[in-house]
């Protein structure tokens, strides 16, 4: 099929951070720098920056280590009360909303070493939705600026 270039979009009216990361943990530095730049540009606050960085790292590391993904992509968009995050990869189907909850009260010797990252993501974010669409994992969630914390 002949490639038809898309019409040039009008300037972005939404305040977003869109990023495609290679499936390589060295990309964490870029993830962190871009998240910081976005949050500071729009004065979203240190707590939101920390949580967003945390969630993105956990999702990204999960995609690379467990999903074997060669790339992931995400978009953070400002909303009147905070941000929404849409994250996507083409790894094996993985629904974070159904992931087993690790026992965070187990004694030291019985502590599971896996599953903690997704647990943290579920703690700091709200309204997590998962869809499997055409071979893509698509995860959507939001983080209000005034988070009551946990």
């Amino acid at each position: 099929m002949k490639h038809v270039p898309r019409k040039k979009c009008p300037p972005h009216r939404r305040y977003t951070l869109e990023l495609v990361l290679d499936g390589n943990l060295a990309e964490l530095a870029r993830l962190t720098a871009e998240t910081a730049r976005f949050c500071r540009q729009y004065a979203l606050g240190d707590d939101l920056e920390f949580d967003l960085n945390l969630v993105l790292e956990e999702l990204f590391v999960n995609s690379v280590r467990h999903g074997g993904c060669k790339a992931v992509e995400f978009e953070v968009a400002m909303t009147p009360d905070g941000v929404t995050l849409e994250y996507a990869d083409r790894g094996p189907a993985f629904d974070p909303t159904q992931a087993a909850v690790p026992d965070v009260t187990a004694p030291l010797e019985d502590r599971p070493v896996g599953g903690l990252g997704i647990h943290l993501a579920r703690q700091v974010m709200r309204d997590i939705e998962y869809h499997r669409v055409d071979g893509w994992n698509r995860i959507r969630m939001r983080r209000p600026i005034a988070s009551e914390g946990t």
């Binding site: 956990e58 502590r111 070493v113």
Partner: peptide
Amino acid sequence: DYISSAGLRAVLQAARAAQ
């Protein structure tokens, strides 16, 4: 300044070694 689950695991493993 920052810690994720990977960092927590590192602390946990060191704590286990200590124990």
